[in-house]
Nucleic acid binder design. Structure first.
Length: 655
RNA sequence: GGGCUCUUAGCUCAGUUGGUUCAGAGCACCUGCCUUACAAGCAGGGGGUCGAAGGUUCGAAUCCUUCAGGGCCCA
C-alpha cells in the first residue's frame, strides 16, 4: 500500500520487456511505474524490488533519485491509516496476516518463500521498528564547527591525548552533518517552538508562552489569537543538546555569562572521558565553547580506554561480566586495585581486566608497607655513618631525581601508566632491593642517626610520588612515620622539585651493580651459599673507582677486594666491560668449563665488534649520522676491543 | 559500505621526533634460597627474524605501499 514503484536491474534480461511499463498494485489498484536501477540485486528473490520510500531507508534514497511518490501508511502507533484502505486502524501484524490471506483469495499470490533478513528492534522493548518519515529540528553545524576544527587541528588550543584521536576528530568535523536535536521522548527539555496553525511555517520560537503569543499574533496577522490556539512542539531536545553546554552551565555561564565563577574557572584544564563520546560530547562542547564564550572550554582532553573482560567484551549489565568493585577492594585494597588497573591503562587503549592485575597492585602495596616496617624497626644510635650507607644515600638521591625528571616528562605528556611504572620500579627495585640492602645494619645492630634520617627523608619523597596512585596507603604510612597535624598531611604536601642529577654517581653505581650481579651469578652457578664469605680479586683495566668497594662487599658478602696485576690462577671469573674479576676457590676449578664460557663470550664480543666496525667503515654513515651517534659507536668499538683483549688474555692464562 | 585504529615473548601490553632509556615490563615458566622487612618474597635464567611482502634511508619495531587478520565509531 505504501509502494510507489517496482524496480528492476537494467542488466536483467528477464525483464527487458517491462522497461518503461507500469504496474498495478493489487488491492488498492494504484498504477505505479517500473523503474530501473543497478541497486537491485538480480540474484535475490524475483529480481523485482517493490519500493516503499516512506518506510525503508534504502527505498527512501531510491525514491528521491527517481522522484517517486512517498506514501506513509502508518499512524504513530503503527496501526494503518487511511492509505491502508479497509485495513485502516488495524495493527500492522494483524494486517500482514490478513493481507496475505486476501491476496491468496483473490488469486494474486503466486508463491511464498522464506527469507532471513535483518529487522531493527528496540533495545528496551524489543518491538520491531518501522522506519517512518517525520519532521525534525536540526541545528546547522557547518559554521559552528569551523572554530572547533581549527582549535584542535590548527591552533592546538585544545589538545587531545592520545594524539591519534585527532584524525578521527578531523574526519567527523570536516564532514559534519546538521545536528538532529529533536527527540520523540516524554522526558527532557521540550522544544520551545509553538505552532499556531497547520501550515509548515506556522510556528514561532520563544522562551515563554506569553512571548510566543505575541510573536504568533504578529506572524499570523491574527490579533485575536489566545494561548489556547498555540501548541508547543511535543518533541524534546537531544540529551547532548544540554550536555554540550556543560563546561559553561556548571558555572551558571549560560544564564549569567558574566558571573564571577565562570569568569574565574572557565576555561578549565583537563577533561577526562571515554573515546566513544568524542563526537557526541567532546567535539560539541568545543563547538559550544567557541559559540557562546568565544573561547575553548578546556585545554586538554584525556581519553581513557574501556575496561573489557578477558574475552574482550565490553563490561555490561546484561552480560554480568563487570567485576564487583567492592569485592575487589576487599580482596586487594583500594590502592591495589587502582595501581593494578593504572599500570596497564595507557591513554586511549582498552584494558583487558584481569584480577591478576589487582594482585600485582596488592603485592606492591605490601612491598611498600614492609619497607616501612624494616626502617621503622631499626634502633637508632649516634654512630659514625658507614661509607657504604653514605654512598647508597647519595646514589639513591641521584636516582630519585633522575626518575622524577622521567615522571614529570610522562605526566606532561599524559602518560599516566608510564609515570606509575617508573615509580613502581624506583620503589621496588632501586629503593627496596638496592638502597635498603646497602644501608641495612647487621642483624639486631642499630643504625646510625645520619643514615636513618636520610632514609626516612627519601622514603617520604617516595610517598609523595606514590600518593596520587595510592592515596590511602601512603597517607597511612605518612602518619605512622611521625605525628602530623592536618596541615602536614601527605595529601597537601609539596610535590618534590626537580634538580640537576649527578650523572657520575649513577654511572659509578651501575658499574658496581654489574659486579654485584657477577658475584651473585657465580654463587648461583656454583651453589655457594650467601653465608659463605668470598674474596674477590680485580684486574682493573677500566681503572674503575674503588669507592664502591664497600657497597660491593656488603651486597655480595665479599671479605676483601684485591687489586691485582696478573690473572689469578684457580679462580672462578667474570668480566664487567674490560675488567676481569676472580673468585679464588678451594678445590678443583673446572678449567675446561671456564674456557668454554670465556670462548663463548669472546665469540659474541667479536661478532659485536664486527658489526660496529662495519658501521663505522661505512662512509655514508660517518658522513650522515649525527656526531653524537658516531661518538657512541666509537665508544662501543673501544669497549669491545678492550674486552676482547681481556678475554684473550684470560683464555691464554688458562692454557 | 565509510573513517579511524591495532598486530611486538606463552598471556596482557609499553615502546615519545627513525640512531644506548631499544628490542622492554608485568604475569606465567625454569633453577636455587623459609637469609634476620617482605615466600604476596629474594637471587639467577630461558623465551621475540616486532603480522607478511616490498620500498625509502648510512640506519626501520618506528616512515611509505600492498596484503592478511582483529577492534572501534558511523550523529
Amino acid at each position: 500500500m505504501g509502494d510507489s514503484a517496482i524496480c528492476i536491474n537494467p542488466k536483467d534480461e528477464r525483464f527487458t520487456h517491462l522497461k518503461g511499463k507500469k504496474a498495478i498494485v493489487p488491492l488498492c489498484d494504484r498504477v505505479i511505474p517500473i523503474i530501473e536501477d543497478t541497486y537491485v540485486d538480480m540474484e535475490f528473490g524475483t529480481g523485482c524490488l517493490k519500493v516503499t520510500p516512506a518506510h525503508d531507508i534504502n527505498d527512501k534514497a531510491l525514491g528521491e533519485k527517481h522522484n517517486l511518490e512517498i506514501i506513509d501508511i502508518f499512524n504513530e502507533d503503527a496501526s494503518l491509516n487511511s492509505f491502508g484502505l479497509h485495513y485502516q486502524g488495524k495493527d500492522r501484524f494483524v494486517v500482514r496476516k490478513e493481507i496475505s490471506k486476501e491476496l491468496e483469495e483473490k488469486g494474486f499470490l503466486i508463491k511464498t518463500e522464506q527469507h532471513i533478513n535483518k529487522v531493527g528492534t528496540s533495545e528496551r522493548t524489543k518491538a520491531v521498528i518501522e522506519p517512518r518519515l517525520s519532521d525534525q529540528w536540526f541545528l546547522k553545524m557547518e559554521d559552528l564547527a569551523k572554530p572547533a576544527l581549527d582549535a584542535v587541528l590548527k591552533t592546538n588550543e585544545v589538545k587531545l591525548f592520545p594524539k591519534k584521536f585527532e584524525n578521527t576528530y578531523r574526519h567527523w568535523m570536516e564532514n559534519i552533518r546538521d545536528w538532529n536535536i529533536s527527540r520523540q521522548l516524554w522526558w527532557g527539555q521540550q522544544i520551545p517552538a509553538f505552532y499556531f496553525g497547520d501550515g509548515h511555517e506556522d510556528f514561532v520560537v520563544a522562551e515563554t508562552m506569553e512571548e510566543a503569543l505575541e510573536l504568533a499574533k504578529f506572524k499570523s496577522g491574527k490579533a485575536d489569537l489566545t494561548s489556547a490556539d498555540l501548541r508547543q512542539d511535543a518533541d524534546v531536545l537531544d540529551t547532548w543538546f544540554s550536555s554540550w553546554l556543560w563546561p559553561i552551565s556548571v558555572f551558571g555561564g549560560i544564564l549569567e555569562p558574566e558571573n564571577e565563577e565562570i569568569q574565574y574557572y572557565y576555561p578549565t584544564n583537563d577533561l577526562v572521558t571515554g573515546p566513544d563520546i568524542l563526537f557526541f560530547w567532546v567535539a560539541r562542547m568545543i563547538v559550544s565553547g567557541y559559540e557562546y564564550r568565544d573561547e575553548r572550554p578546556f585545554e586538554n582532553v584525556y581519553f581513557t580506554g574501556l575496561v573489557r573482560d578477558k574475552q574482550r567484551r565490553k563490561m555490561s549489565k546484561s552480560l554480568g561480566n563487570s567485576p564487583d568493585a567492592l569485592k575487589l577492594i576487599e580482596d586487594y585494597g583500594a590502592d591495589g586495585v587502582r595501581v593494578g588497573l593504572l599500570l596497564s591503562a595507557a591513554a586511549g587503549n582498552d584494558l583487558m581486566f584481569d584480577e591478576s592485575l589487582c594482585q600485582q597492585g596488592k603485592n606492591f602495596a605490601n612491598k611498600i608497607w614492609n619497607g616501612f616496617r624494616l626502617v621503622k624497626g631499626w634502633e637508632i644510635e649516634d654512630l659514625p655513618q658507614p661509607e657504604a650507607s653514605k654512598l647508597g644515600i647519595e646514589w639513591y638521591t641521584a636516582k630519585f631525581n633522575a626518575t622524577l625528571l622521567e615522571i614529570e616528562d610522562h605526566f606532561s605528556k599524559y602518560r599516566i601508566s608510564d609515570a606509575l611504572m617508573s615509580i613502581y620500579k624506583l620503589v621496588w627495585d632501586d629503593y627496596s632491593s638496592w638502597l635498603l640492602e646497602i644501608i641495612k645494619p647487621a642483624y639486631q645492630k642499630p643504625i646510625d642517626k645520619t643514615t636513618f634520617n636520610a632514609v626516612i627523608n627519601l622514603f617520604e619523597q617516595n610517598l609523595k610520588l606514590l600518593h596520587p596512585f595510592m592515596p590511602f596507603l601512603t597517607e597511612e604510612v605518612w602518619q605512622h612515620i611521625t605525628e602530623r597535624t592536618p596541615e602536614e598531611a601527605l595529601m597537601v604536601s609539596q610535590w618534590p622539585k626537580t634538580v640537576t642529577v649527578n650523572e657520575d654517581i649513577l654511572t659509578g653505581f651501575n658499574f658496581a651493580a654489574d659486579i654485584v650481579a657477577g658475584v651473585r651469578t657465580i654463587r648461583k652457578e656454583k651453589n655457594i651459599p650467601m653465608k659463605e664469605a668470598l674474596s674477590l680479586s680485580v684486574l682493573n683495566t677500566e681503572k674503575a673507582s674503588k669507592e664502591w668497594d664497600t657497597v660491593i662487599r656488603k651486597l655480595t658478602n665479599v671479605d676483601t677486594i684485591d687489586y691485582v696485576d696478573v690473572a689469578v690462577d684457580g679462580a672462578l671469573t667474570f668480566r664487567v666491560k674490560s675488567n676481569e674479576y676472580f673468585i679464588p676457590m678451594e678445590g678443583a676449578i673446572d678449567i675446561e668449563a671456564e674456557k668454554i664460557k670465556i670462548a663463548e663470550e669472546l665469540k659474541y664480543t667479536k661478532g659485536f665488534l664486527m658489526s660496529v666496525q662495519k658501521k663505522l667503515s661505512n662512509e655514508r654513515f660517518v658522513n650522515n649520522a649525527p656526531e653524537q651517534v658516531i661518538a657512541i659507536e666509537r665508544k662501543k668499538l673501544a669497549d669491545a676491543e678492550a674486552k676482547i683483549e681481556t678475554l684473550e688474555k684470560s683464555l691464554a692464562s688458562l692454557g
